[in-house]
Design a binder for these strands. Structure first.
Lengths: 161, 161
DNA sequence: TATTGTTATACTCTATAACTATA
DNA sequence: TATAGTTATAGAGTATAACAATA
């Protein structure tokens, strides 16, 4: 279990513990802030994430791919897409190539709301990250990328194991 | 809305958006990993956080202080302490100085389980942060501290506003 | 048989509001 | 009146298992 140099016996008493606590706390703040800004638009944080992924995809996405992309279980996507569909922001279609699959596409209304959602999301993110210098933000970004590196390929989705 | 230099027109298309997404994703991974390691001990992630805060406090804590310290609403603490009390890990006592308040203390059993919880929590954190060098971890820590800085005093608890 | 998405069910965490008991 | 903690209620998100339709 001796990786790089984590278990250095007496150096840092609980450095990773502190990191973990701060990371969770910061993320939670961000989520809370975003939720508050997104509420007037009638979408939740999770639904906004779905829309963002859909907007970036060049083609309609299958439910399973959406789940993998969001790193959540497929069941969770069902509920989110249900809500988005009810709100008229996305469209569910059967994949003609594989009739088991469902393809999700943003509607015109969805694309129109998306801009406002992005602005709301960005406003709350800016509110948090705005207090860092450009350089610090770049550093933070690269550290987060490093933390997520190996896994993106291997353990993208939680999956029932 | 012009803060430091966030809205620099064409520099970073969606740097804060990326940061936000990665932060949430990383935190979620950490939480999922910790939950898995804590499950055999019969405690949830939130309950483990409560125990950690209690263990660090020099004296028994009131429910309200616990809530503020965890940045959650008092109501949420009630459920967590309920579970911990049922499991015999903490004790609820009426504050003799103010009989409206409830003081929470870890029991002997609680303190004994706490070591194992900390080990479980740390194992999953190490699993994530272990891939960073000591220097990078220090950098990340200071960035996270900076992100949480001003607020600690001002908006510690979400509070009903 | 395996896979896709769903229904069914349950749990954690959160939030708001109303209530009780103290102060 | 105000505060501390609770009950009551509701909603978001997650997980697991079982099922129907399709491959």
């Amino acid at each position: 279990m001796t990786r790089g140099k984590p278990p250095a016996p007496g150096s840092s008493p609980d450095s990773v513990g502190q990191l973990a606590e701060l990371l969770v706390r910061t993320s939670w703040r961000l989520r809370r802030g975003s939720s508050k800004e997104l509420a007037p638009l009638g979408v939740t944080f999770g639904q906004a994430r779905v829309m963002r992924v859909l907007a970036r995809a060049p083609e309609p996405m299958r439910m399973a791919d959406l789940a993998a992309s969001l790193e959540i279980v497929p069941r969770s996507v069902t509920t989110m897409v249900d809500s988005l569909e009810e709100a008229g922001l996305v469209l569910r279609e059967v994949d003609p190539h594989d009739r088991r699959s469902v393809l999700v596409t943003p509607t015109a209304a969805g694309r129109s709301v998306l801009a406002r959602m992005d602005r709301a999301r960005r406003a709350s993110a800016e509110d948090l990250f705005g207090r860092l210098t450009d350089r610090d933000r770049t550093t933070l970004l690269s550290l987060l990328v490093a933390l997520n590196a190996d896994r993106d390929g291997a353990t993208a989705a939680p999956g029932p194991r």
